[in-house]
Amino acid sequence: MLEIKNLHVKLQDEDKVILKGMNLTVETGKVHAIMGPNGSGKSTMSYVLSGRDGYEVTEGSATLGGKELLDMEPEERAAAGLFLAFQYPVEIPGVGNMTFLRTALNAQRKARGEEELSAGEFLKLVREKAKTLKIDADMLKRPVNVGFSGGEKKRNEILQMAMLEPKMCILDETDSGLDVDAMRLVADGVNALRAPDRSFLVITHYQRLLDHIKPDVVHIMADGRILQTGGPELALEVENNGYAEILAAHGLTEAK
């Protein structure tokens, strides 16, 4: 599904190199988790994959279903099936959540040559999906993320995911700022979307999210690349022992 090969990325306006030969393959239908200390490049990777400005790819490739992502505009990547759940979902005053969802969904359908949904069809769909995420009608009517609590914002991200039905979902620290109940609700939403043709890449600092969203594969990332790959037990090991041992084995020290 997602294949990252020897990816090197630097900041556009500075000499700072962030990704240093990253390799990662996420198979169709699998859930991969990436853990790593602060500054390891996890969020940068998610931004580069989804096409945010400000980064320069100096080497390597990233393909989704065999198609090169790095040549596409952000909206083309979305239409190709990539979805990034933001660590900090953006507030957009004056644009209703429903308008936003419908615009996004129909833009993607149009880009794929599919028929756009009518207002009625859309409404039915969004109500159905919102219900399972415990998102009430009021939240749908309000401007995008404005006045939403941390939990509501993350649930809103998952609602977008449910509506847009991407093939490859990247969750960037979706657990940050969530209490236990909100995390469970978000995790349930994600689990409901697990499917044989849909892959996930879950970026997190903490093992606890992975208690709820059970990964098939866990990667440890530091210094702009994947250091170690294993099963779910790798996350537990990090939770208990920290990153020091793994970093030391690769000649790295912990971030200051």
């Binding site: 096409g51 239409a79 847009l164």
Partner: peptide, 16 residues
């Protein structure tokens, strides 16, 4: 970027 990452083309996103 948020809007575009959801599939909204750049000019439409600016309009919004």
């Amino acid at each position: 970027f948020y809007l575009r990452s959801r599939g909204v083309p750049e000019e439409d996103a600016k309009g919004l």
